[in-house]
Each structure stands twice: as C-alpha cells, then as structure tokens.
Amino acid sequence: MSYTAWILLTAVLVGLSCSLIGVFLILRKMAMMADAISHTVLLGIVTAYLITRSLSGVHMLIGAIVAGLLTSILVQWLNNRGVQQDASIGVVFTTLFAIGVVLISTSVGNVHLDVQHALMGEIAFIPWKTINVPILGEIPEATLLLLVVLIIVIVAIIAFYKEWKITSFDPALAASLGIPVAAMHYLFMGLVSVTTVASFDAVGAIMVVAMLITPAASAYLWTDRLLVMLGLSGGFGMVSAGIGYGIAVLLDTSISASMAFATGIIFLLSFLLSPVHGLLGRKLRPPKPIEDAQTAHI
C-alpha cells in the first residue's frame, strides 16, 4: 500500500474506534473524564518505559490501562471524600500529567519521548515503523495496534451492549437487576485507556478527545436510537479523519490537529442544521407544552 494510503487508513481507524467508544462516553456524561485519561496515559507510557526500557506497543498499552484505571480510581476516591466531581477530575489529571511532563523534560532516566509528539502525535512517521505480520505482510506497527484495538472495541460493544446501555441510562435499575455497575464502569474506562493509547502515536493526547467526543455529540443531534447513534458516530469519525487529512495536506499543517478541527466542523453543521435535534429542527417544530398536572398534595 502507498504511504498516503497507510496514513489515511490509520487516521480512519482512529476515527472509528474513538467515535464508537465516544457514544457511551457522552451518554454517561464522562466527556471530561475522557479528557483526563487522555492526559494521564502520558504518565502511564513514561512509567512503562522507565520500568521496561522499551517502547514496545504492548508495554505502552499496559502502562496506559494502569494509568487510566488509576485515574478513575483516584477521581472516585476523592469524590467520595467530599470533593466535587469536576474538581476531583481536575486535581488528579493535571497532577499526573505534570509528573509525566516533568519526567520527560528533565530526562530523568533518559526518557526519549518528545513532549510535542506525545501531545500532537506524528501520524506522518507511522508508515515507517513496520512490523511483519503473517498473511498481511509488512504493515505499520501503529496501524496494526489500532486494527486490533478496533476489533476489541467492536467485540466489547457487541458483548456488553445491553449492560452498557442500561448502566448508561439508569444505573440504579441496573444495580437492582444484579448488573455489576462498578465493574462495567472500570471495564469501560479500561477500554477508553486502550483506545486512547493506541491513538496516541497517531493523533496525540489532546486531539484524541476531539475524536472521542465530537463525532458522538454530532450523532446525538441526529437520532434517538442508540444503534443508529453508534453507526452515525462511526461514520462521522471516519469522515472527519478523511477531511482532516485533506485539509492538512492543503494547508501543510498538523494532520491530527486538522482532524480535530474537522470533527468540529461536522459538529457545527449538525448543531445548526439537524432537522431532528439541531437549531433547524427546533425552529421547525415548537417544543411540547408542559402537561397539566392535576394532582394536589395532601
């Protein structure tokens, strides 16, 4: 496959994986949690490197999962001790991220990670680092990782569709039905971490957030059905990746940043023009009147 084709494929894989996970993220109102995890995986990666002295994909994944779970646990712990949810997230992720940056920039233990890279990714370098895989031949390591992660994401969503659907809409009901709400939550957080780190190489920390949240939010404005929302979100994710790449080539600028920007454009269009839940829709159909309440208190 050509150089450009590999890059596009990688970008599309990022768009797809992230946007699928993103649907559950926004429904569970955990957008900022995703933002937090996308920052703390940096520390996970750095720590994994310090311990194993290798930049292999598997080690980074494990480091990321640990970081993601640690973030969730710490946030939950602080919240239980009376700190507001938002503030808990803020304290945990900024501290862990700062530690990660300090480790890198002070070259403690000679960590050869470039901070810019960690933030913005460098998808342009991906086709060069290849790995030999049976049947498929030489394919870039990062692309392979993303492919595996995408499969994991799809399998997980299929396997846990009912459980995640219920725990997203009504955790109390879910608990009463015997569904392990906490376990589902941490499983989900683990999946977010994995997706994030797989996308790291390509788009970096902050743009992952764009891919996680924005296509899903756009889809949310077009439909009320979860399955359709997943489909639309995936579609928007892939399209954003493609458009972003096009813009980047046109303007000679960062591919990942352009992809983030493209998700924004699609969202803006959805926000303004969706006849279902966008501004256009609200203009066409007035909101339902408040029903008369005919009950009196005694």
Binding site: I26, K29, V209, A210, T214, A216, A260, F261, G264, F271
Partner: peptide, 28 residues
C-alpha cells in the same frame, strides 16, 4: 442551552476543537 448536548460534552468539544485549530495555525 440550545441543544440536548450536555455541558461536559460541550466543554470537551470546545477544548479539543479550539486547541486543534490552535495547533493547526501554530504549525503553519
């Protein structure tokens, strides 16, 4: 206010899209 998108999602969108725009321009 004007859509069903919740505040946390809106914050995440503005955060990452604006930052993305910033990086695009900065790279140029």
């Amino acid at each position: 206010v004007a859509s069903r998108v919740k505040e946390d999602s809106a914050m995440g969108i503005v955060l990452s899209v604006f930052f993305g725009m910033g990086i695009m321009l900065l790279t140029i």
